[in-house]
Computed example of a mutant assay.
Amino acid sequence: MDYRKFLGKEEERVLPYFGGAFLYAADRRLRLATEPEAPGWYRFRVKGREATALGPSEPEGLEALPTVRGHLVGERLVREGSIAERLHFLPEEEPPRLTPARARRWHSGELVFEMLDFESEAEEAARRALEEDASLAQVKGVPATLRSAFAYAVLEAASRRLGIPAAPRELRPHLGNVAEQGRVEAERALRALAAERILAAREMEELNRRRQVAALAQHAALAQEVAVQARVQARRQERGGRHRRGEEDAMARAELALEAAGARMRSVRVLGNGNLEVIFTFMDERFISVVNRDTLQVVDSGICLGHPPSDNLVTLESLPSVIKEAIDTDSLVILRHA
């Protein structure tokens, strides 16, 4: 097969234009040579994968597409499942609210308007309830899509009145109660939504604040670590290598960490499993703690840190501040004594 003949073939098609730089036919996506002025149905000249608009047209080929029925609320069709979906290419004359309508599902997923359906007494009763600021509690024989459309309309009006914007997906859980209780329930639901947004914003603000504090602390810790390493190196040179390098580094870093926190190291010795026992004084008290030699993470603080213990959340540098808080709150319990 000579594919060049296919690519060079020209044809005319009537297709919907939803906006953007592409069209969607049943078999392929087409690139527009020039974009039409507005969304709508057009006749296009198609060559390969490029389309050129020739002018507006009436719809064609709708009968082959899946049918979707529901009730109108503004530019949305409320279909099964209480889903309010945007409906494209509505008539220029706006249909009455809660009008039943029929749409078709285009190949790319959009709903395109086909026609208005016949009404029953239920639509008129629902409109009357909407006009009288009532509910559907006493109205019988209301189809599910009409009931949901009524609730969306009530919520839409309340949203404008209260100045609380809301998307249909946010309102969907409240449709049943709003249909039964009307305006009062709609306003309650919207105010609850607004309160949830405020709470979420506060929590996000607090989370961001904590992240900033943590980032600053991490930056400060990194800077201090660099300074500590420089001082350790200087002390190693002064001491002339009297101890093994790893142990000397750890001991020096432990001493510097305590000094930075306002404590004074009295002695330190190497334990098994890569740990150090550090004896230090702080606020005129003597403490014995076990820390990891490499990270100075506390293994055993030597004081009571809650139930269950949370020693692993503390470093040697932060331990003195924890001790101070325990002293200030009269809750210090020393577990390790000489």
Rank of each mutant, 00 (worst) to 15 (best):
R69T: 10
L72P: 04
E93Y: 04
S82N: 09
R104H: 14
V78H: 05
F118K: 13
R76H: 11
S108D: 15
P95T: 01
F89G: 13
L87T: 06
P95W: 01
R76N: 00
E94F: 04
P91K: 00
L90Y: 03
P95N: 06
E93K: 15
G70I: 04
L111F: 03
E119Y: 03
L98Y: 00
R86E: 09
P91H: 10
A103S: 02
V112M: 08
R79T: 14
E94L: 04
A103R: 01
A101C: 06
A84K: 01
G81V: 04
E85L: 08
E114Q: 13
E110Y: 09
P100R: 05
A84N: 01
R69P: 04
E93I: 14
E80V: 10
E75M: 14
L77K: 00
W106K: 03
E80A: 15
V78S: 05
R86K: 11
R69N: 07
V73K: 02
R102A: 15
E75V: 15
L77S: 04
F118D: 15
V78K: 07
L77A: 10
G70M: 03
E94M: 06
R69V: 12
H88F: 15
G74V: 08
R86S: 05
F89C: 13
G74R: 01
T99R: 14
E80L: 15
L111T: 07
R86G: 06
R105W: 04
P66E: 07
A101E: 10
G74Y: 07
S82M: 06
A84S: 12
E75K: 14
V73H: 05
E92K: 09
I83W: 09
R104Q: 12
A101K: 10
V78D: 02
T67N: 02
E114K: 02
D117Y: 01
R76C: 03
V112F: 00
E110T: 06
P96F: 13
R79C: 13
M115F: 03
P95Q: 07
D117G: 04
P100H: 10
V73P: 02
R69F: 00
P66Q: 11
G70W: 00
E92N: 01
E121R: 12
A103M: 05
L90I: 04
R105Y: 02
P66H: 13
L116M: 14
H107Q: 11
G109L: 07
R76A: 06
E114I: 02
P96D: 13
D117W: 03
R102C: 15
P100G: 05
H107P: 00
D117Q: 07
L111Y: 02
E85G: 01
T99E: 15
L77F: 10
V78T: 06
V112L: 03
L98D: 05
L111R: 05
